[in-house]
Amino acid sequence: MFEVEKINSFYGKAHVLRDLSFSVPHGKVVALLGRNGAGKSTTMKSIIQLVRPASGSVLFQGQQMIGLPPHKIAKLGLGYVPEERRIFTDLTVSENLMVGLQPPRDGAVTWTQDMLFDLFPNLAERRNNRGKALSGGEQQMLTIARTLMGNPRFVLLDEPSEGVAPVIVEQMAQVIKQLKSEGLTILLSEQNLHFAQAVADLAVIIEGGAQVYFGTLQDLGAHPEIRDAYLAA
């Protein structure tokens, strides 16, 4: 479904991703784990081409992503949920969803605003509120919902549990499980191992922009030394 092979990305002269490779099988949730600054967000951005990798390949459904403009990638069914959320604060919740709207797509759920309000009941009450009036958790839900409006087949979820209340984190986990059960493939970046264990099938651990582990989360459980070396407690 999705394959990253030996990508190298730079910020100016800083070498951020080093020969990073992993793959995401169809219908699975893969957790991208690593410490702060390990290169998780850069990996996400290098996939959607907000950062252009200097070398390597990013294949989505067999097609090369490197060099495509972000809007074309999104049109192919690859959705991106940024870590900083980047909701449109002057637009209402409903309007934010309207920005994400794309035509229906084969092999993907065709989302409507009402379906998303069922998925995120908190947003339903606030549909006519402006983005800036939302709480952090609500903004996080909105940014996911907005991307789902594009009916993606594959979603990049950049740290959805960051900076939101524990009860919302719990809700996020439920949502991710539900999305997976509906056939969505997800790459999820996380610092929170417990959260990843609750929702993901596979894990990629990166350190200093390079892959140090790629396998199932069960196997990772059997290797506490990897967990201790590369993930925060």
């Binding site: 959607i48 907000l50 403009p69 972000p70 809007h71 074309k72 999104a74 049109k75 991106y80 940024p82 980047r86 449109f88 604060t89 002057d90 637009l91 309007e95 934010n96 309207m98 920005v99 994400g100 709207l101 794309q102 907005r146 991307t147 594009g150």
Partner: peptide, 24 residues
């Protein structure tokens, strides 16, 4: 209108509008 929504969204963060599939 949706066009108006896109215009206002792009006024704030045009890169994100692009990442959501709109050809800037």
């Amino acid at each position: 209108t949706r066009v108006g929504v896109l215009v206002r969204a792009a006024t704030q963060d045009r890169e994100m509008v692009g990442a959501l599939g709109v050809n800037q």
